[in-house]
Every structure is written in C-alpha cells, then in structure tokens.
Design a protein around this nucleic acid. Structure first.
Lengths: 150, 150
DNA sequence: AATCAATAGTTCGATATCTAACTATAATAG
DNA sequence: CTATTATAGTTAGATATCGAACTATTGATT
C-alpha cells in the first residue's frame, strides 16, 4: 500500500465516520421528544449510569465538547427541569450537576424510543460484528484526544 | 451477551463515532485557511477525484447532507471562486457544479496542510489496522442510509 | 502576604446544519 | 392537452457547536 493509498484510506475512514454520525444523529434526534437532541440524552444517560454530582468541565471532557457547548446543553437541561446545578462547595469556581426525578424519567422514556432502533440494528447487522471494531475506535479516539494540538 | 449489554455496546459505538468525528473535524478545521471547513474541502476533493459537472443533489447524497446544507456549502465555495455553477442543459430544474483553477489549487494547498496529520496517524497507529474496520463502517453507513425513515 | 498564572464557567458572535415551506420545472395520467 | 404528482433547488428560522474574550476563584512563586 503506497503513501497516497494510505492517505486516501484514512480520509475515507473519517468520511465514513462523519456520515454515520450524521445519519445516526438524525435518526436519534427525530425520535426524541420536541426540541431534545442526542447531546441532551447522552448527558442525562451519562449522569444516570455513572452517577451525578459531576462538574460541567468533567462532562465537557467526557463528550469532547467545549465548555461553551456544555454551558448551553446544561442550560437547556435545567430549563426542562431535568437537572439541578449547584455551586461546588469544594471549589468556588466550579459547579456540580445533579439529576432530578424528571430527568431520570426522561431517560426511561428516551430509552424506550431509542432502543427499538438499536434492537433492529442488532437484529439486522449483529452487535457482535459491529462491536468488534470498538477497540480500534477507542484507540483512534484516544489518539486524537491526546494529539489535539499536534 | 444479553440484550442490555448489546444495547449499551451499540450506543457506545455511536458515542465513540460521534467523539471521533468531533475531534477529527476540529483538527481538520483548525488547519484549513480562514473560514474554510472540512465540508468545503470534501466537496472540492470529491469533484477533483471523481470529476466535476455533478448536480448539487448528487453531491448532497454523496455526503448525506440535506439539499439546504449543500446550497449553503456551494454558495460559500462559489463566493470563494472555487467552483462555478451552471444551469443543467438537460434539466431546467437542475444545475451543474464545475471546479475552477482556483478550486483545484485550493485542494492542493489544503492537502498539503491536512496530509501531515494523516501521515502522523499512519505512522503512530498504522493505516493497516485502522482501515481494517472500513468494511464494517461502510456496512453500517449503508444500513443507516437505507433505513432512514424506519 | 502579594502578585502572577492557571482554572471553571459564562457570554458573544459566527457558522454549519437541520426542518419546513416555497418556486420552478419535469414527468405522468386521464 | 390538461391536471396532478414528483423532483431540484432556494429561502427562512432554529439550534448545536465552536473560538475568543471576559469574570471570578484558586494555586504558586517570590
């Protein structure tokens, strides 16, 4: 495989990833209740699965978005009553994000609307085959994260 | 692997893909000359590699963006003098997109700034290993494309 | 202790993208 | 032919995201 081919392969890789993200994002967004976005769900889901009481910065790092983006997302979630944001007693600059009951029940509803898509995908393509590429994706993600300014 | 695990795996898959897209997109965008975006480059690159004289709709399908998005992208490219858009003599509703010399030379410049990133990635992680996941990504992309309304 | 640098979060302006509604042309059906 | 339906592209409005500049607090250096 010569240099030009390798470059083209890698570029194609990012191209495919970009398209998948767009298609999957749209599919998810269309299923979620009015005005809610995958990014909102993933934050709620994260807090639910791994525990709340995290700072906005921790969340923005977990999803690799800017602090500004997370401020916006959390604002929407708070306006909906899905989270409550408190000052961090341990650090005056910082805040802590907590889930409300409403937030948890939103997750339940959202899951009920999103999981049929995943189940169908599992049935049609097979999770085993798909999740075989997870290690490479994680490796790529970690690499990109570590070489952000390079 | 039980149902809950499979769902979580698939969700994680989309999550990784979303993050990679964000990191790679940002890395590319930061390298491109003022105000230009990966989406602009990919259109130019596509026209250069596979031939110009395509319609906006064909382009929007190739990149899985809406017609409205492609209108916007092509407007920016035309304002920069990278493309010229003509009426399609074969269909009065349609148009055809052609590259200008300026567009081709932009591609050359852009490639020179983007490819070092890909070369470093090739060197550090290896294109062989990475491109091994391309078939699964293509399969997933095709599936999502075909099941867009499902 | 005082100053300077680093960190957390917000605000502001820009932009890429989406959906929905619209215009114009083409294709099909009666 | 005419009328309806489908297709190509644009426009308008909304929003998620980004980068840069700003405020407030913490940490480090002298």
């Amino acid at each position: 495989m010569d240099k030009a081919t390798r470059r083209q392969r890698l570029f194609e890789l990012f191209n495919e990833i970009g398209i998948i993200q767009q298609l999957a994002g749209t599919a998810f967004n269309n299923r979620l209740p009015d005005g809610l976005h995958v990014s909102h769900f993933t934050v709620i889901n994260h807090l639910c699965r791994l525990g709340d009481g995290r700072t906005p910065l921790q969340l923005s790092r977990a999803f690799q978005v800017t602090k500004a983006t997370m401020t916006n997302t959390l604002g929407k979630l708070e306006a909906r009553g899905f989270i409550r944001v408190r000052n961090n007693p341990a650090d005056g600059r910082s805040k802590l994000v907590f889930l409300t009951d409403k937030g948890r029940s939103f997750r339940t509803t959202a899951i009920a609307t999103l999981y049929p898509l995943l189940d169908k995908l599992d049935q049609d393509l097979g999770t085993e085959a798909l999740s075989r590429i997870l290690p490479q994706l994680r490796q790529l993600r970690t690499y990109l994260d570590e070489n952000r300014d390079g």
